[in-house]
């Protein structure tokens, strides 16, 4: 059993989400950084899509009430067990009574804590992913609180280290490859260019639903009222004030703002590492290239994690 001593900024239980329900207003949700989530699971010998804890920005303290193997992946948060540094790239053993502390996210935003066999949560539409706006899934539909106790399974596991080349490198200046969104050409020419020039900065209004950015204003050629239309994670929307909003994993299923850019699928996982203050640049991608890159990265990571795809 694991006890939460301090929740830090936030801890939620996540898996790979509940696809196929956007037409009912239910976003997919799931781990915001799918890659780090998968790697944490792989290190303790789980299937990559096993439920794990998503820890935001650090400040989390956990107490273990039995001996077990655990792994942490994602944002570097100066993790320590009873004051001894532990690695983000290898699974390790903890003893009953040990305390794990995550300090603060030096680079990136989210770290994943995986245990053998994963965690139990409330199922909704086939997923235990926590979606806070509707209190779905997770631990009683909410974020974890201090003194919550999570049961863990007694199963023996291998203790793995991420092989060289598979661990993502994070930076507080992130570059996303993007294609033109459906309304990209409704922007004035200067805005079309500006989106790809200076970096934007994520504001305090940054969470699993989206990141409000500040930077060069994005202005349409003419102001029109858009009719509400479907919206995807990774879409850069342009509201009337000209400061773009990047939709994330819990983002709205439909929206009424111009959809200016769409981050390519293979880069979506990195959105989970955006925190307030992160610098964000967009690089233009080409449809066919995006497809090739995706196929290559899926093959690369599924050779490590069986069945993994971005």
């Amino acid at each position: 059993m694991i006890e939460i001593l301090q929740t830090g900024t936030r801890i939620t239980l996540q898996d790979v989400g509940r696809p196929g329900h956007r037409h009912e207003g239910i976003p997919r949700s799931g781990a915001a950084d799918k890659l780090s989530f998968g790697l944490a699971n792989w290190m303790v010998g789980n299937d990559w899509n096993t439920p794990a804890l998503e820890c935001v920005l650090g400040g989390q303290h956990f107490k273990f009430h039995k001996d077990m193997t655990i792994a942490i992946a994602g944002a570097e948060m100066w993790a320590q067990v009873n004051g001894q540094n532990v690695s983000n790239f290898t699974a390790f053993k903890v003893k009953s009574g040990n305390i794990l502390t995550l300090s603060f996210a030096r680079i990136g935003c989210r770290a994943y804590l995986a245990v053998p066999g994963g965690f139990q949560g409330d199922d909704f539409l086939g997923s235990i992913s926590t979606y806070l706006p509707a209190s779905l899934g997770g631990y009683k539909g909410r974020a974890l609180q201090s003194r919550d106790q999570l049961e863990t399974l007694d199963i023996t596991t291998t203790t793995r280290s991420i092989p060289k080349g598979y661990a993502p490198q994070f930076s507080n200046h992130m570059v996303f490859r993007a294609l033109e969104g459906p309304e990209f050409y409704d922007l004035c020419l200067a805005s079309q260019r500006n989106l790809f020039i200076d970096p934007y900065e994520a504001t305090q209004n940054t969470n699993r639903m989206g990141a409000r950015l500040k930077g060069n204003k994005v202005v349409p050629k003419e102001v029109t009222n858009m009719i509400s239309s479907p919206l995807l994670p990774g879409t850069l929307q342009c509201p009337p004030d000209g400061q773009p909003i990047l939709a994330m994993t819990d983002g709205h299923c439909t929206g009424g703002y111009l959809r200016t850019l769409q981050i390519i699928r293979v880069d979506l996982w990195l959105m989970g590492q955006i925190k307030p203050g992160s610098k964000i640049s967009f690089r233009r991608s080409i449809g066919d290239d995006a497809f090739e890159v995706l196929a290559g990265r899926n093959a690369f990571y599924s050779s490590l994690m069986d069945g993994f795809s971005f």
């Binding site: 696809p19 956007r22 037409h23 009719i227 509400s228 239309s229 299923c253 497809f291 995706l294 795809s309």
Partner: peptide
Amino acid sequence: EEVVPGYNSLLAYFCPAKFK
């Protein structure tokens, strides 16, 4: 993966691993 209606639009989201 997702098929989503809008008022005057429709989104069809596919899985590129299965579908070019």
